[in-house]
Design a binder for these strands. Sequence first.
RNA 1: GGUUGCUUAGCUCAGCUGGGAGAGCAUCUCCCUUACAAGGAGAGGGUCAUAGGUUCGAUCCCUAUAGCAACCACCA
Length: 952
Amino acid sequence: MEKTFDSKAIEQRIYQNWEAKGYFKPNGNKDASTYCIMLPPPNVTGSLHMGHAFQQTIMDTLIRYRRMNGDNTLWQAGTDHAGIATQMVVERKIAAEEQKTRQDYGRDAFIDKIWQWKEQSGGTITKQMRRLGDSVDWTRERFTMDPGLSKAVQEVFVRLYQEDLIYRGKRLVNWDPKLRTAISDLEVENKEIKSHMWHLRYPLADGAVTNEGKNYLVVATTRPETMLGDTAVAVNSNDPRYKDLIGKFVLLPLVDRRIPIVGDEHADMEKGTGCVKITPAHDFNDNEVGKRHNLPMINILTEDACIREEAEVFNTNGEPSTEYSTYIPEEYRNLERYAARKAILAKFEELGLLEKTEDHVLQQPYGDRGGVPIEPMLTDQWYVRASILAKPAIEAVEDGRIQFVPKAYENMYFAWMRNIQDWCISRQLWWGHRIPAWYDEKGNVYVARNEEEARKLNNLGADVKLRQDEDVLDTWFSSALWTFSTLGWPEQTRELKTFHPTNVLVTGFDIIFFWVARMIMMTMHFMKDENGNSQVPFKTVYVTGLIRDEEGQKMSKSKGNILDPLDMIDGISLEELVTKRTGNMMQPQMAEKIAKRTRKQFADGIEAHGTDALRFTLAALASTGRDINWDMKRLEGYRNFCNKLWNASRYVLMNAENKTITRPDAKDLTLADRWILSRLQIAVKDLRSALDNYRFDQAASVLYEFIWNEFCDWYLELTKPVLWHGSDVNKNATIHTLLRVLETLLRLAHPIIPFITEEIWQNVAPLVVDNFKADSTIMLQDYPAYEENLVDSKVMSQLDFIKQLIINVRNIRVEVQVGPSVKLNALLKATEEDAATTSANIDFIKALANLESISVLAADAEKPLSITKLIGETELLIPMAGLIDKDAELQRLDKEIAKLVGECDRINKKLGNESFVAKAPANVIDKEKEKLAGYTAQLNKLKEQYQSIKNL
RNA sequence: GGUUGCUUAGCUCAGCUGGGAGAGCAUCUCCCUUACAAGGAGAGGGUCAUAGGUUCGAUCCCUAUAGCAACCACCA
């Protein structure tokens, strides 16, 4: 074996073997319990980021753990077509390479182009998942636009429509003028921007005047350009300044539109001027006001947010209306919205109608994909009546059929679900599931699984021309069906029956609303058990935090702080890293800054750490669902840990080499052997409990602690005296124990660090596993079970004493500055038990503490001048008359005595406190008393030592 | 504006139902000892954000404050 673990070469070889042998498939055991995790489908053309690596490490750990437990285990994987994101990528690509738009291509050709792109780049992320060691059943990989899944989407749409849970309507939606599509509320991000508040004068009509005698009202607005679509001015009905004007009219400047003054609670007397311009077609609040007052809606914008040549006028129900003129002054026509704003403000100024301009900070809604301000826009869209579907979905979490880990996220879920708005599911895109609705020439709509069915169901003859709805569905519509569509629904497949409901969903909190909530709603509506009760999609939602950079910043391309998990695994040179971070940027001006920072932070690039180190780090950081600030040091530490395990294994294998090792008699085991076997059981117990409770951080620390601090630091050292000087039976017993413990802990650690454990196991298992089969794999071995009867607490306390003894000798060496190579003589004034332990294990003690001799003094023996330490009630003495630095030793003892006196005082005070004695529980009082007794005994011995040294 | 979470060693974070705080990294000292210098043996380091309260006892429970973060809503 090499001195270090060559992760790159070994990992890929191992993974290929696993996959080729079909180890990732369910075992099909009908008697076993089933365990299923659905991979949140990543964007098919995307690539792996830290969040994926994090979540997948957790999923793979759970899956491997369950698989080793014998469960019939399925990790279902697949990818998402990611409608907007993918379409944008391809649009950018054809723009850059061919100077073409999707319209140049035409719908069908453009979609073909996307499919080509998908074929070409679609494998990236699944390849990366393989590098992570993900044990997903690749034979069942799915894609949201597969025929099967598309059928599920269609079926769900049609059924929901038939149940009146999907409807079409002309409503105000969040419109992305760059992508020219509607988006859902969730896809809107508010950004704080500096802008202005403009106060505009609207002249009163019919000679009306305000209380103050003015012949105009002043409205305050941040969006003056929308005034072209105003259909009212609202004032508060209780506002003494204006209430008399309610029912009168203003004459809207520029278009001379006579519009009413209405009284509405929306107008806040405290804010602005108290008068609000009402633009029902371009503002959500105004739209509500419009409904309350039966106001017409005037759409003045095109789908790319330019001023129309002619407005569209609708009545309050969205039907075309002639109540107002569609006239728009020529000077504003076709102006982009912000140019229009400028022009309109200029005109108001010119007319003397711009009363004032104030600085104003406002939250402006932006499309999360397009990155431009969204525009509330009056369009025909499809909606899901989410509030109805939400009801059972809320109940399922309330009554615990679905549990969130950490639980705190349930509140977030409830808050959103209890106030859920209808979900706009149509998108004016080309890439996605086309809406299965057809229109005849009169505009009647027919929803069906296909055109033929539409005709048949509605008795439409061949002479009726039908055209399919142009729009596609929101990507999240198909992802919402993920748990059952991937298993074959609407067919009643065996997989669906076996694996649904699934067990755990591992995902980020950022998509609880986008995905988790909608998945629960859709699944519970469509999936029923044999009794007709709703099935949940999963029983547990494990919510991870976000992985941020070392400064706590979100990782993003534009910030140039992205870390690629593959680079942590394989390493990357500085130049490549800089190129990667600065290449293909949306804002090239940032490139220099990013390059500079990257060069500073990663002066030597990134070293290869191996998959296992990355996975172990991610597990160790997975604590409470909090965000994680990524720390390269942590990764290095755990890479060292993997190396430690590797070298410990080398030690074990070197000692087992060319020897016939047989199962030893129990009596031939040394104390150290028996101790590590006990200690191993405790690790097994702790690790199982950590994994059962989704505490991957605890699992990692149990492994780290056991492997490094117990197995390597103590046990391996304790085996050396046996292997070098011990009897043959002891040697055999110790080597056997080394192999047995190593083999067990490899299985224990395998779910988190699969590669290194497999590689070592292949060498260790043949030496210790009964009936070892040549082509077996660690991933299908039994996960270690806790065996309580193997835990010997007496052995553990004996070894604990030995450890303390050795540590104290080492401490003395440092205190008196005697190097570790100098052999010392030690004496003990020991309790009967400690004396027995010492003499039975004298070789261990002598070897690890590097002692020439150690002997137990008789109870009444004179104590020679020594440096002395206390181990419980036993005194350790190192006679070293000439070596003692009297002052230093006295000082040290002083310090220790003072500390103990302090402790004793505190406890005495506590025990003297009447209310403490009266009210504290008995066991707490006993504990304090015990402590006091112990401290007092120690104190006395220390004082004795102090005296003897002082008398020197 | 509302909600939730966070504030513990220089850094990153654990700390289960209240009984005088732990890890890794970093720092300091000594050691290339036949598994490992990506190592070994030791050491130092904390008013548990602040102020009140409940309690015999508070890092933990309650209230308020400050700072940070996220989410939701809204600002015409």
